[in-house]
């Protein structure tokens, strides 16, 4: 599966469109990470626990989107977008969406 956030893929021609595919996940932070983050909040700086948490959730959302695209018979997702929103206190939704397409390698014109 090829993923890009551009409209086309170099060296490949889009032969079929399958429309929108999306994947999302809503995650809550856990108490252990929250406690450490609370301490870290005093001095500022990176909250590594949260960075990892959001990375994991993003991978999960991407995975769901890829599964949806595979079901449609696509082999690439172009024009990928991400969006994050907080649904409730301590919970965040990670959404990724794009256009599922089938691509074929372009023959180099010689």
């Amino acid at each position: 599966m090829i993923l890009t956030n551009t409209e086309t893929i170099p060296g490949q021609t889009i032969v079929d469109h399958y429309g929108l595919v999306q994947g999302s996940t809503i995650r809550a932070k856990n108490i252990g990470r929250d406690l450490m983050a609370g301490l870290k909040n005093l001095v500022g700086g990176e909250l590594k626990g949260y960075t990892e948490l959001l990375q994991e959730s993003r991978d999960e959302a991407l995975q769901r989107m890829v599964e949806q695209a595979e079901e449609l018979g696509a082999n690439a997702v172009v024009n990928l977008r991400f969006s994050t929103s907080s649904v409730a206190a301590g919970a965040a939704e990670i959404l990724c969406y794009g256009t599922a397409v089938r691509v074929e390698a372009t023959r180099p014109s010689l």
Partner: peptide, 28 residues
């Protein structure tokens, strides 16, 4: 912008991600 340079042959393209969570200190 998302336009590929026309004068170069591109062999590979893939999605790249980078993320971070940063908090501000108590004084600020």
């Amino acid at each position: 912008f998302g336009m590929f340079p026309a004068d170069k042959t591109i062999v590979h393209a893939e999605l790249a991600l980078g993320s971070v969570v940063i908090s501000v200190d108590y004084f600020k």
